[in-house]
Design a protein around this nucleic acid. Structure first.
Length: 1122
RNA sequence: GGGCCUGUAGCUCAGCCGGUUAGAGCGCUACACUGAUAAUGUAGAGGUCCGUGGUUCGAGUCCACGCAGGCCCA
């Protein structure tokens, strides 16, 4: 016979440690996977974190979500493999190493060899792996951490090479250019990180120009666009507006040429360029003479940005003619009216946004040809205009690049100034001014940088834009708005993916080219590389074939020279690829596809489920999607859950600077991982931001876990005393008391709800439903009301039913809650379930998820009980109002019952109500009893639909019905109303033709409630009314005294430390005859309740204590009976 | 400037297909219970449902425009 272990104190940290040890010892995690059918896979992908930083509290949130659904699906019978992974390449690692070694990027390859540098990176990248693995274990995230995929493994990288070759083969991998910060003085590009160095941004005075772009088909309409880099104006090929920004056309005169012009700019920018009041007087324009100030102006037309889209204009500075149509108005979100004119000059070769917009709208850049290069910018790599810009050929575009001695010549003028003068003279400048702003400088040369097109390798995602969008629509996003909104919009505005990184610690691009760029090879595997090298050896370009062990990282691959089909040497393109490619390729590379495990890959692609933070929308979610669509024309994942940020308790972002970062380990130590998990999931939907407040964790512990624990402890206490055996034949459902049927119905309804909400990937709803059941239904109602059944001494079917019912509830709760709180549910499950023989096999996580059985579900009963609970609560409030303790029995409770079904419902729960509120009798007043005052209310839902606008009139009429009307309606089930409109309401007559109409009301059309019962104390909530007879007679008073006495004696027992089963002998010395009579009257009851074998009334009493019974004092003594 | 999210009690959150007295927990106040006891129960107080319009017989709920906060993008 098994006993049910009791844990006196709820220590969830300790529980977690013990359960964890149990899982380790019994290999429970692997067992949970192995026991499921190999063909019933549920595929989950773990997004690889970067282990060069410590894990934070937000990782607990995303990992809890992952764990919940993996565990849930396991319980549903699926085989859910979870391979961990590490994102091991990338800039953060490199920067950390630079810092650690005290070097800069320039030193790599100079002061320190690439080989040694990368060796440092390899070491640095996993420095927090231990912490991460500890977190994984402690929080109970079941993940295979023993066989992780590592993005720097050679096999992993070989898979990447294979994928890159596939893309290359499909023509989706190409060399182009991207706009990057570039230092002409140093001749090198700068990373965003380098631009973020302190002191890099400096205030600088530039010549700013508002240029006039003449609209095509007009003589004097001009678009105004502002720039602080006039040297980019010869490269202008478009103007951008904001779709929803308001624009105006202003009639005025050019301030330099005094010619009449009509200029178009944002309404919000008008006050920036027109300082005086506008004039409406046409004469002012007629009288204007060149040179007059102020210059008159007047708004003559209004537009919205979208009205302007597509209009064309004349090229401002026609040095170079583009091959495709250009000089058009386009729209983009990045346009603002905070500075400038609200129209933005677009030079695709000199701005990242400019280039993106040009690509999206099909506008060509202004470029020139030189030999094999067909698209060079109009500024060379030294920062000088090319020959085609005839007026300024060979001149530096930034004054700072010009040698000092030239700048100091008296007649020297910068290109910006010269350009401005030229524009002024040709009626193309509306305003020229000095403008001071903060501008990035090259940290080495201290000269301003240019945004300049530099070579880069791209994945042509735009080629598959439609498929990307179409397939995204087949993905189930939680929340939906991320998929349709954030992710969807991102796809709509797709640009090609810049894959190049001019760095060292990453997957090298496997592309070799000849010096003249004419021949190109993309290598897709190690074997292929060996073959190529062998050929290179044969051609005399390499000394030796590839060694058996080769690292595919730099610098080793850089040393490999291949031979082209034409016999020329080929060198590797020096870039490494974006780390996001690494992680986006994990479905393939984690199993070394296609070189190994092809079948396994087929079974585990695409993923059924992934989950990460919202910040991964444009990160991992995107790269996974892009690669799957481009390579396989499939989605990479079918279901995704995105979680929001974890903020501090005041809603601020957690940051080291603010010192409000929460340490996940100390949280788990303090409160236990289950509490933390339950709190994070139950408090708010995962995609809402979580305001992390430890008070909330404490509340969860107290409210949910402590209640569940108490309920279990209660069960265990008595089950052990009674030697309850869970294997005993079940008492048939119909033989169990109503209340058992009720809680079992609630339980199965709960199973249904929880299953549905897990299936819908809304764990918050699941957690809340479980908690609600445990706290309200199970603990606060079922256990409280049924305590007596457990401690009653004789065994029998009723007691057995109580045990079996509570047992079923507890064990099912353990299973339902197991995905969210894996440790405590395991403890409770094992405590309930274990048999010594098969203990090692016993785990809640190895069980099948409970199934809701319809034979248990009785929604009518659930409603009834709810009604009974309402009645009880109302009676309590009445007792309270009239200061009548629950211990004092009352004679009668009166329930006005409007319809018969309600009456039968309540009647079936009558005894329950009686004992709960301590009344002797429940009486019902039905509609024939005239003592009840009733209230009638329209049922708007029914009447509103039928009568529409007339419902308000009807409501007035209904409100005026008399008690007699109501009674007639109740008896006849219908009531005919003759609706007559007073004359003053004649305006409403069309609704009531003939001013009179007959309307028939049925019981469904109204809601009748009992308002009051004259002479009784009444309480009412919604449709429920109760009336209480609060008169007391001597019999009731005596019974009340008996109950009070029991209560005091119980306290005495407890004070004296007696155990539940101990028997006692009681001696009392009641001084008041009424009390003595009460005791004699209820002696048997008292003895039974306090487990007394003997109760004596004595004349005198030695020692003992004095009991106080609401004014009566009774000397008493109890002794334990051995 | 754009996309998305959020806005309901002091705090954290529910609130379905629109139905006329807007709910829970915590906290607060008072009381009860005392064989679940470092637990538990009941009651009370506490609301401009962010604002303004609109649709509707009827709006916390639907629509529009704003406001505030957040995230992402620029």
């Amino acid at each position: 016979m098994s006993t049910y272990p009791t844990h006196s104190k709820l220590d969830l940290s300790q529980t977690a440690r013990a359960i964890h040890a149990f899982w380790e010892k019994n290999d429970t995690f692997q067992r949970s996977i192995r026991q499921r059918d190999e063909k019933q896979n549920f595929t989950f992908y773990e997004g690889p974190p970067s282990a060069n930083g410590a894990p934070g509290i937000h990782h607990v949130l995303s990992r809890t979500i992952k764990d919940i659904f993996c565990r849930y699906k396991t319980q549903q019978g699926f085989r859910v493999q979870r391979k961990s992974g590490w994102d091991a390449h990338g800039l953060p690692v490199e920067l950390a190493v630079e810092k650690q070694l005290g070097i800069t990027k320039e030193d790599i390859g100079a002061k320190i060899s690439v080989e040694i540098y990368n060796a440092h990176c390899r070491q640095a990248v996993l420095q927090y792996k231990e912490q991460w693995d500890t977190l994984t274990k402690q929080m109970g995230y079941w993940l295979d951490t023993d066989h992780p995929y590592l993005t720097f493994d050679r096999d992993y990288m070989e898979s990447l090479w294979h994928l890159l070759k596939q893309l290359h083969h499909k023509g989706l991998l190409y060399k182009g250019y991207s706009i990057q910060p570039y230092s002409p003085a140093a001749g090198t590009g700068l990373s965003a990180h380098e631009l973020n160095q302190p002191g890099c941004y400096k205030p600088i005075k530039d010549t700013s120009v508002v240029a006039q772009f003449r609209a095509e088909g007009t003589e004097r309409d001009y678009f105004l666009a502002w720039t602080t880099t006039p040297w980019t104006l010869p490269a202008n090929s478009a103007l951008a507006v904001g779709k929803y920004i308001d624009y105006v056309k202003v009639r005025t005169f050019n301030p330099y040429t005094y010619q009449p012009v009509q200029v178009i700019l944002a309404q919000a920018a008008v006050q920036r360029y027109f300082l005086t009041e506008s004039t409406q007087d046409p004469a002012t324009f007629a009288h204007y003479r060149a040179g007059d100030t102020p210059i008159p102006w007047q708004i003559i037309a209004h537009y919205q940005g979208k009205d302007l889209i597509g209009q064309t204009y004349h090229q401002l500075l026609p040095y170079v003619t583009p091959k495709q149509p250009a000089f058009r108005i386009v729209a983009d979100d990045f346009v603002t009216t905070e500075e400038g004119t609200g129209l933005v000059h677009i030079a695709p070769t000199f701005g990242a946004d400019d280039m993106r917009i040009a690509q999206q709208t099909g506008i060509p850049p202004i470029t020139v040809e030189r030999g094999s290069d067909t698209a060079l910018p109009i500024v060379d790599r030294q920062g000088r205009f090319v020959a085609e810009i005839t007026d300024f050929a060979g001149q530096y575009v930034k004054e700072a690049y010009v040698p000092q001695e030239i700048r100091q010549q008296p007649n020297y003028k910068s290109v910006d100034i010269l350009l401005a003068i030229k524009l002024k003279e040709t009626n193309k400048a509306f305003q020229v001014a000095k403008y001071e702003h903060s501008y990035p400088h090259c940290w080495r040369t201290d000269k301003p940088i240019l945004y300049y097109p530099l070579d880069a390798w791209f994945i042509k995602t735009t080629a598959c834009k439609d498929r990307l969008i179409a397939l995204n629509k087949t993905i189930s996003w939680q929340p939906k708005s991320v998929g349709a909104g954030r992710f969807g919009n991102w796809l709509e505005n797709l640009v090609d993916w810049n894959l190049s990184r001019d760095r060292y610690w990453g997957t090298p691009l496997p592309i070799w080219r000849t010096k003249d760029q004419q021949e190109e090879k993309c290598v897709g595997s190690l074997a292929e590389l060996r073959l190529e090298v062998d050929q290179a050896v044969a051609a005399g370009l390499m000394d030796a074939p590839l060694p058996a062990e080769i690292d595919l990282h730099r610098p080793y691959v850089d040393q490999i020279v291949l031979v082209s089909p034409q016999g020329k040497p080929m060198y590797r393109e020096s870039d490494v690829i974006d780390v996001w490619f690494d992680s986006g390729a994990m479905p393939y590379a984690q199993c070394h596809y296609p070189f190994e495990n092809q079948e396994m890959f087929a079974q585990h692609f695409p993923a059924d489920f992934i989950a990460e933070g919202l910040d991964q929308t444009r990160g991992w979610f995107f790269t996974l999607h892009v690669l799957a669509v481009l390579l396989f024309d499939k989605v990479a994942f079918k279901q995704v859950v995105a979680n929001g940020l974890v903020l501090d308790q005041h809603g601020n972002k957690m940051s080291k600077r603010l010192g409000n970062v929460v340490n996940p380990f100390s949280m788990m130590d303090q409160y236990g991982p289950d509490t933390l998990r339950w709190y994070m999931i139950s408090n708010a939907n995962p995609w809402d931001h979580l305001k992390f407040d430890p008070h909330g964790i404490i509340e969860v512990k107290r409210r949910f876990f402590a209640t569940l624990h108490n309920t279990y402890s209660f069960f265990a206490l008595y089950a052990n005393i009674d030697q309850f055996d869970r294997e005993t034949l079940l008492v048939p459902l119909t033989d169990r008391p109503k209340i058992d049927q009720w809680i079992l119905s609630c339980l199965h309804s709960l199973i249904q709800t929880v299953t549905e909400t897990y299936e819908a990937y809304t764990p918050t709803q699941a957690a809340r439903a479980i908690q609600d059941f445990v706290v309200n239904d199970l603990s606060n109602w079922y256990v409280r009301l049924n305590r007596k059944r457990f401690w009653q001494s004789e065994d029998g079917p009723d007691k057995l039913a109580a045990y079996q019912t509570l047992y079923a509830c507890l064990i099912t709760i353990a299973q339902l809650a197991a995905p969210i709180a894996p440790f405590y549910t395991e403890q409770i499950y094992q405590a309930l379930h274990h048999t010594d023989q098969q203990k090692e096999a016993c785990s809640v996580h190895l069980t099948d998820f409970p199934k809701a059985e319809s034979q248990f579900i009785n929604t009518t009963l659930e409603k009834k009980m709810h009604e009974a609970q309402k009645i009880v609560s109302l009676v309590h409030s009445l007792r309270k109002k009239h200061q009548l303790k629950v211990r004092q029995p009352l004679a009668r409770l009166l329930l006005p019952i409007v319809d018969k079904t309600t009456k039968t419902h309540i009647a079936s729960l009558e005894s329950l109500i009686k004992s709960e509120v301590n009344v002797k009798d429940v009486a019902y007043i039905d509609d024939t009893t005239a003592v009840v005052t009733k209230k009638i209310k329209p049922n708007f839902k029914v009447l509103g639909q039928r009568y529409g606008a007339r419902v308000q009139m009807l409501a007035q009429i209904i409100a005026q019905l008399t008690q007699a009307d109501i009674q007639r309606l109740e008896q006849a089930q219908r009531l005919e109303l003759a609706v007559v409109l007073p004359n003053s309401e004649a305006a409403m007559a069309p609704f009531f033709p003939g001013h009179s109409e007959s309307i028939v009301l049925t019981l469904d059309d109204v809601i009748i409630t009992s308002e009051d019962i004259p002479g009784w104390v009444v309480a009412k909530e919604g449709n429920t009314t109760v009336a209480l007879d609060i008169r007391l007679d001597d019999a009731l008073r005596q019974e009340g005294i008996a109950r009070e006495l029991v209560n005091r004696l119980q306290n005495l027992r407890k004070e004296q430390g007696l155990a539940v089963q101990d028997k006692i002998e009681v001696t009392l010395m009641p001084q008041h005859p009424f009390v003595a009579a009460a005791i004699r009257q209820h002696k048997a009851y008292i003895c039974q309740e306090v487990q007394a074998t003997k109760l004596e009334l004595a004349e005198t009493l030695q020692g003992g204590v004095t009991l106080d019974l609401d004014g009566y004092t009774i000397p008493a003594s109890i002794t334990k009976n051995f």
